[in-house]
Amino acid sequence: MRPYTVALAGNPNTGKSTLFNTLTGLRQHTGNWAGKTVVSAEGEFIHEDTAFRMIDLPGTYSLYSNSADEEVARDYIIFEQPDVTIVVLDATSLERNLNLALQVLEMTSRVVVCINLMDEAKKLGIRVDTDQIERQLGVPVVAVSARNKTGIDTLLDKVAEIASGSHVPKPVPVIYNDDIEKKIAQLEPLIRQTLGDRFPARWVALRLLDEDESLISSLRAKLHEQPATEQKEEIRYGRTACH
């Protein structure tokens, strides 16, 4: 049997690399600055006789394709459709980190939210009620400290449950303002007609309403069964960029 695929998403500098190293036994260098991981890594691990292949996506603040990194992460989740996506959150700045988790939940329901740096949060006097977050999000939420290796087993149990399909989470969707919701309602059926159930219709509707050009070209490439060409990393200096 092919191993289950697990994608690791999260803000930059949330300890994603540390978690990846802990799980796969690989040794990526970790550092305390945003954007440290420049090459996405892959590794394997076994949990209770089940094999998993883990992909460390680039650390991003969002998945709205503002940059090449965000496009890579988005395309992986939406087109490769990993069996499970772990969203790593920094317990010390949950507000911003939840922003990304909510975006991922619009793309896939097969998510485990992993709140990392719990030890740091405790030191700073931040108390996080993971059960409450789990209720609010509708997907499993596990608190871990990747560097002290606590909570890892629970995390892997949840990942295994979702991968095997024995637990199918029902994420609580973000409700937008009436105007946007009305527009989504109009567009969703059209999307189902055209694309079927291959992609999450509500999310595609939001992206189309946002006129996300990059997603549209990725979708187009995918629909014509032209394998999405490898993300070009060469530098085109002639184009005046404004990032």
């Binding site: 939840l98 922003n99 909510l102 996080v128 609010q136 999000l137 937008y176 105007d179 946007i180 946002d210």
Partner: peptide, 25 residues
């Protein structure tokens, strides 16, 4: 609609944090 989208997601984040995160000190 980008501004509204992000604003709404952020208010949801804040809402969850209000319920689930406590700052002791």
């Amino acid at each position: 609609i980008r501004d509204e989208l992000v604003s709404d997601i952020y208010s949801r984040s804040r809402q969850i944090c209000k319920l689930a995160v406590q700052y002791e000190d």
